[in-house]
Write a protein that binds this DNA or RNA. Structure first.
Length: 529
RNA sequence: GGCCCCGUCGUCUAGCGGUUAGGACACCGCCCUUUCAAGGCGGCAGCACGGGUUCAAGUCCCGUCGGGGUCACCA
């Protein structure tokens, strides 16, 4: 189980839906393994299921891996020395190995219909017996079977031992063994000529010279089949490490009903690739020095497969959000600006995708953090989708805001929440929030606005320092605390309760627009008295 | 249900026979503060249970309980 010398590792996702966070999780550990010990990281497409195949899936998978910067050395779109890397394009290879297993007596043709298998299963289940295949066709002589091939639908099954133990070593769990009596004869080549996972996986790991497997625990119980197949083919299985599955808050396997799992969703929500990888690197794993915030390079540098834990880590979006914020803050202003603009471009015009959930959506009832975050993200992204185009026309304004918003947001979508007031002439006055300022009566509010207007008109350099100094002097001269008047001015000038620092914001808005908004606010307030 | 894997604060985890069981997120106070975010200080909170082994057990063994995975011509 050594890691000396070059390794060849892989991920083998199935193109059946949205690119899954588990793929990135395994991708991270496999990529890190290749980088740490030297070697190649291979992307193999497990597309042997014709029914579940999804056309867009492969492209999205590639897009997601590229976004995360999980580069593969060989893969379906870039080829490699053992091409092709799509299993659907390797049918002749699997056929060849299946024939070999057949001829060597390690596999057999099975002519059972799906209906029969169903009923066998049902009866067994009813009687509380094992539901596996009853091996009806196991002893049909090969010569007899071959005569039936032309006229009967058939599959090929592996001939598993009937007794004894089948064991293997897992890097994390040690020796794991299964009583052969509990296992049945699995299909390895389907009626349509496609292999099942078991065959394709063993053959390709062998053909691609894979040395180490890091994959999800869900595969653990299928290893005995692979052991027997490998034995039948006279090859050794790669060293294996089964990692715990990511979990929902209730500890069940992470699922899109209870958690966001689509990698492209995380991108749209404004997570950073650095944040995603860092967070996944904390799942079932920790650095020896307890460091929690790290770059991919730091992760690789200290990567030690024997430190991988065995418990099932709950995918905690709340901690993920915090961690992503740490990475946002670590970006230089230039880099942050670049990413924010790219993010806005990416979302602009996509209103249709970010419509609010229907009122009866369970997300509103459950109220878990993940649900709330989903709703929040939808709201944020809808605004970006609607207004993004307009914002992009004034990149200089975005640039001026960058230093003030970078440290205030955990995601790019959250950062964009600060933008709207700076791109609209006069947003509506948040009168309810103004009414909330209970420590000031209406007369004080009007006095404050008059004072602010006068200061803004008369501050020669219109710098945030001068504005602040004058404003403080004014407020203190009245013997007021600074909180209420500043909040009022914020609401009048920015029309928002939450914003970048007030006076910096005024400078970015410009004297004219700030004045215009304050004067209109004053009128409105006076009229309401 | 059979088989397999797993079990330290609510969550992510450190711990690899002798620790006041450490850190982080979240939460709660206080401080800082023009809002928010960030930051500082403090607090709450954990070895699933029961037997062994040992001078000594969160650490080793067994059992119980609990959780998860898997039992497809899906991967």
């Amino acid at each position: 189980m050594a890691f000396n010398g070059p390794v060849r590792v892989r991920i083998a996702p199935s193109p059946t839906g949205d690119p899954h966070v588990g793929t990135a999780y395994m991708g991270l550990f496999n990529r890190a393994c290749a980088d740490k010990f030297g070697g190649q990281f291979i992307f193999r497409l497990d597309d042997t299921d014709q029914k579940r195949r999804n056309e867009k899936s492969e492209a999205m998978l590639i897009e997601a891996l590229r976004w995360l910067n999980l580069k593969y050395d060989e893969g379906p779109d870039i080829g490699g020395p053992y091409k092709p890397y799509r299993q659907s394009e390797r049918l002749d290879i699997y056929k060849r190995y299946a024939d070999k297993l057949l001829n060597d007596g390690h596999a057999y043709y099975c002519f059972c219909t799906e209906e029969r298998l169903d009923s066998v299963r049902k009866i067994a289940a009813k009687e509380g017996k094992q539901t596996g295949y009853d091996r009806k066709c196991r002893d049909i002589p090969l010569a007899d079977a071959k005569k039936r091939l032309a006229t009967e639908k058939h599959v090929i099954r592996a001939k598993m031992p009937l007794s004894g133990e089948i064991a293997f070593d897992d890097l994390l769990r040690g020796r794991v063994s299964f009583p052969a009596a509990d296992l049945d004869d699995k299909v390895i080549l389907k009626a349509d000529g496609f292999p099942t996972y078991h065959l394709a996986n063993v053959v390709d790991d062998m053909e691609f010279k894979i040395t180490h497997i890091f994959r999800g625990e869900e595969w653990l119980s299928s290893v005995p089949f692979h052991v027997i197949l490998a034995q039948g083919l006279g090859v050794k299985l790669p060293a294996m490490t089964h990692m715990s599955l990511l979990r929902n808050a209730d500890k069940s396997k992470v699922s899109k009903r209870k958690n966001p799992t689509n990698l492209l969703w995380f991108r749209d929500a404004g997570f950073l690739p650095e944040g995603v990888l860092n967070f996944l690197g904390l799942m079932s794993y920790s650095l020896a020095n307890d460091q929690e915030i790290f770059t991919y390079d730091e992760f690789v540098k200290q990567f030690d497969p024997t430190r991988i834990g065995t418990g099932g880590p709950v995918f905690d979006l709340q901690k993920f959000e915090w961690l992503n914020g740490e990475h946002v803050r670590r970006l230089s202003d230039e880099e942050f600006e670049k990413r924010l603009i790219a993010h806005i471009k990416h979302l602009a015009g996509r209103e249709a995708e970010f419509q609010p959930l229907p009122a009866d959506d369970p997300a509103y009832q459950l109220g878990t953090f993940a649900d709330k975050f989903r709703i929040k993200t939808l709201e944020r992204n809808l605004v970006i989708a609607k207004l993004g185009e307009k914002w992009l026309k004034q990149p200089d304004v975005i640039g001026k805001l960058v230093p003030h918003i970078k440290g205030r947001a955990h995601t790019l979508s959250e950062a964009a929440e600060y933008l709207p007031p700076f791109f609209e002439e006069v947003p509506p006055l948040p009168v309810a929030d103004i009414a909330e300022i209970k420590k000031f009566d209406d007369a004080q509010k009007i006095e404050t606005l008059r004072g602010a207007i006068e200061i803004i008109e008369n501050t020669a350099d219109f710098s945030h320092q001068s504005l602040e100094a004058a404003m403080r002097q004014f407020v203190e001269g009245k013997g007021w605390k600074i909180g209420p008047p500043f909040m009022l001015i914020r609401l009048a000038a920015l029309r928002a309760k939450v914003s970048p620092p007030l006076f910096e914001s005024m400078v970015i808005l410009g004297r004219d627009l700030t004045l215009k908004r304050l004067k209109l606010a004053l009128e409105e307030l006076s009229a309401r008295r």
